[in-house]
Design a protein around this nucleic acid. Structure first.
Lengths: 135, 135
DNA sequence: ATCTAATACCGATTGACAGTCGGTTTTATG
DNA sequence: CATAAAACCGACTGTCAATCGGTATTAGAT
């Protein structure tokens, strides 16, 4: 049985990634100014975190003069999708139906309107998919 | 930003939990015979694993004579639900819509029929929910 | 009552990995 | 070519899963 694989994101890693999702392309110094100072941690710690995220392929980077500029290389939705995928594969490889039911419950728990939205998204997906098939 | 909380399940923990899901109430020895021997690990290792799962509230147990009998205290669907919930809260606390969209993609990726099933589940959920409201 | 074997319980070790930072090397630019 | 900024490297801490040895407990046999 497979297990939920690391990369598993730590608290700081998640915060850094979040910050890059919201603020686009940034160097270590910018991230440090925004997050590091407020947390009272060193510039180096932020840099290590950026590097770890880079190694995990969650960030890409390009060198501009001295410094690297980091960019989130996965969208929020992609990361979420792959993590959910991992959960499902770990717990219920051959029980997709249970997974779907669990999800409907989650979606509805917070707000029943989510179910409407979910239906809508299903139909949107079908439209796109139909197009793709006929091309 | 919150982080995907442990209990995080290791490979052996998951295998043990899986075995209990499939085989119901068992003592350490039974689990050892089924999983431990095949893996060449000791009886103690299985026992530690059972205890760790118990501490994480994923198993309950009752003492029968000398031995504890362990029972999975969460269903597969529940655990999956709470893990998916964690993922969503970690990555997308305030972006439920993105989460819903990501999920539709995941569901459809494996099999388009999942979308039909998803719709069906939504309607089932609504029926139950309508009952609850009118009572 | 006491011996024994099964079992629980405790603690130690190993191996990952996140978080943290100090120290050293590299490099763009004045 | 000196300097400051940044990367890079390595170390240490803390947490947790996996693993097992050793000890305490206890149910059941004699």
């Amino acid at each position: 049985m497979q297990i939920l694989k690391r990369p598993y994101l730590g608290e700081l890693e998640m915060a850094v990634l979040e910050y890059l999702w919201l603020n686009g392309e940034l160097d270590a110094n910018s991230v440090y100014s925004a997050l590091g100072k407020a947390r009272g941690i060193s510039h180096n710690t932020i840099q290590s975190t950026l590097e770890r995220l880079f190694k995990k392929k969650l960030l890409s980077r390009k060198k501009i003069s001295r410094a690297y500029i980091y960019i989130a290389s996965v969208a929020r939705e992609e990361l979420m999708g792959s993590m959910i995928n991992d959960v499902v594969n770990t717990i219920s490889k051959d029980n997709t139906d249970g997974m779907l039911a669990a999800f409907v419950n989650i979606a509805a728990k917070t707000d029943d309107a989510h179910l409407d939205r979910l239906e809508q998204l299903i139909n949107e997906y079908r439209s796109n998919n139909a197009n793709r098939k006929s091309s």
